[in-house]
């Protein structure tokens, strides 16, 4: 009974929303499969998906490095001025007596995104060059556990809202890091969109 099941359903998937079984062994490239009962997107196939993933995650990581090492914004009023960098958002919360909030913000906007991106880059490189290693499964597990806790794009909107709130109080100068972070948020969102859970694990199974 058991062997029969695993053979029959080698490329099968149960819809994560309604449990209906589908055979996804023949989804053509550049198309997607949706559950006919509940509408859940089951998988999406793209040409050169691993190369695309490598390029996107690498670009995002470079932007992240620039964003965290240069001035983000400068605020000045009545001859006084203050410069802000990305790590300062976390440090200032800590100094102001809110260490827990500092930890949460650091995790959501810096730590988790950079860990997830680095792991995606390594995983996609392994997949691109077809390296057989058990490491790929470990990376896959960690990536899919962590990826719902990245809030890069949310933080970016938060930055825009803050800008509107204070432009009327004083003058704000945007730094290199602000533009780098905008690009980082963009590349990050595209990296996440290019990551298809079903296709990824199919490849991981073949490699480990």
């Amino acid at each position: 009974m058991e062997t029969e099941i695993s053979n029959d359903h080698k490329y099968s998937i149960a819809c994560p929303s309604c449990d209906l079984i589908y055979d996804l062994s023949e989804v053509p490239v550049n198309s997607s499969a949706t559950c006919s009962r509940c509408g859940h997107l089951l998988t999406q196939t793209r040409e050169n998906e691993f190369l695309r993933g490598v390029c996107l995650s690498f670009s995002a990581l470079v932007m992240m490095l620039i964003a965290s090492s240069y001035p983000f914004m400068q605020f000045s009023s009545a001859g006084l001025e203050n410069m802000m960098t990305l790590p300062r958002t976390v440090v200032e919360l800590w100094i102001n007596g809110m260490p827990w909030l500092a930890v949460i913000v650091a995790a959501f906007i810096l730590v988790i995104p950079s860990i997830v991106l680095t792991m995606i880059l390594v995983m996609q490189l392994i997949m691109l060059y077809d390296v057989k290693t058990p490491l790929v499964a470990i990376l896959g597990k960690a990536i899919f556990h962590l990826n719902s806790w990245s809030m890069v794009e949310v933080f970016f909107v938060g930055v825009l809202v803050s800008l509107v709130k204070i432009t009327k109080m004083a003058s704000v100068v945007l730094g290199v890091s602000f533009w780098a972070y905008s690009l980082f948020a963009l590349f990050f969102v595209f990296t996440m969109m290019s990551l298809d859970r079903f296709q990824c694990w199919k490849k991981i199974e073949a490699l480990s």
Partner: peptide, 8 residues
């Protein structure tokens, strides 16, 4: 977080 770091 942004305002606290920026406006000081």
């Amino acid at each position: 977080a942004v305002l606290v770091a920026l406006v000081h």
